[in-house]
């Protein structure tokens, strides 16, 4: 049997390559965005770090989205190719190794963004400390915890969306398999469209309820600001686990590779 660690290592090799390209483009885009400022002046006064953080944050969102989308595509390829489905491992192991390796690779994107934040912090220690001291007046401040859990929520949100993407993909494969051979492509497109619409509608329907649930401990205790992201992380984890169980069942009983 293939070892779980080996499986993660193999997946990670491919995924780090994907994320590496995204990070390279991200760093290049942030630095290149500073070039016009070199000629206009602001780079040489005290504002350069503000400008850098601004561009880093802007390009960072694009990089995070791009890396998320490319990793989602890479995840889905695993379920329909013989390269991975022939491996002597259970579908549960295959699914979790696939998702876990994407999770690890995605952390690298966050770390690249963190480097720009740290550079900003190093050149603006006093400003940042003053800002933190005033922003959380009246709360029990545990900034490190807030940051750790906010980071975790960011990562878990992506894992949650990857699980949703897998559900849509695997359900489409399952339904298509039961339909006649003719006009498969059209049927596939229609099923994808219908499932994506259903997911978006469900998401907006439960979003308000979900936000209230995530703020519940904050509203009750009112002093532990860091509890809000903890609660959100927990909800995301439970939902991701439920989706995982459904996806593994579909892999086990319905979804096969392309012939």
């Amino acid at each position: 049997m293939t070892d779980f660690k080996q499986l993660v290592r193999v997946f990670l090799t491919d995924k780090i390559r994907i994320v590496g390209s995204v990070i390279t483009v991200y760093v290049a885009a942030t630095l290149l965005s500073l070039v016009p400022a070199l000629f206009n002046g602001p780079v040489f006064d005290k504002c350069w770090s503000n400008l850098m953080l601004l561009y880093a944050a802007g390009w960072g969102s694009v990089a995070a989205l791009l890396a998320g989308a490319l990793l989602a595509y890479s995840n889905e390829k695993v379920y329909r190719t013989n390269r991975y489905r022939l491996l002597p491992v259970s579908n549960g192991k295959l699914y979790s190794a696939n998702l876990f390796s994407s999770f690890l690779a995605y952390i690298l994107v966050f770390l690249a963004e963190l480097i720009f934040v740290l550079i900003y912090y190093l050149f603006n220690i006093k400003t940042v400390r003053a800002l933190i001291a005033h922003s959380f007046a009246g709360f029990e401040l545990r900034l490190s915890l807030i940051l750790v859990f906010a980071f975790l929520v960011g990562l878990l949100t992506m894992v949650f969306w990857w699980s949703i993407a897998s559900l849509v993909h695997l359900l489409t494969a399952t339904i298509t398999r039961t339909l006649p051979d003719k006009h498969q492509l059209i049927a596939q497109c229609l099923i994808y469209a219908a499932l994506i619409m259903a997911v978006v509608r469900t998401y907006f329907a439960v979003k308000a309820w979900w936000s209230q649930l995530a703020d519940l401990p904050f509203m009750v205790t009112s002093v532990n600001a860091y509890l809000s992201p903890v609660w959100a992380a927990l909800i995301l984890l439970v939902l991701t686990l439920v989706l995982g169980v459904i996806n593994v069942w579909l892999l086990e009983h319905q979804v096969e590779t392309k012939q």
Binding site: M1, D3, K77, V78, N82, R83, T257
Partner: peptide, 27 residues
């Protein structure tokens, strides 16, 4: 051992990497 058409590997993959993959995942 199933003779597969190497679906899932990109055209840019080196043969050494394919062999390394096989050595890693098949004990």
């Amino acid at each position: 051992s199933y003779l597969d058409a190497l679906g899932g590997f990109s055209r840019r993959t080196k043969i050494a990497d394919v062999v390394e993959f096989y050595a890693a995942v098949y004990p």
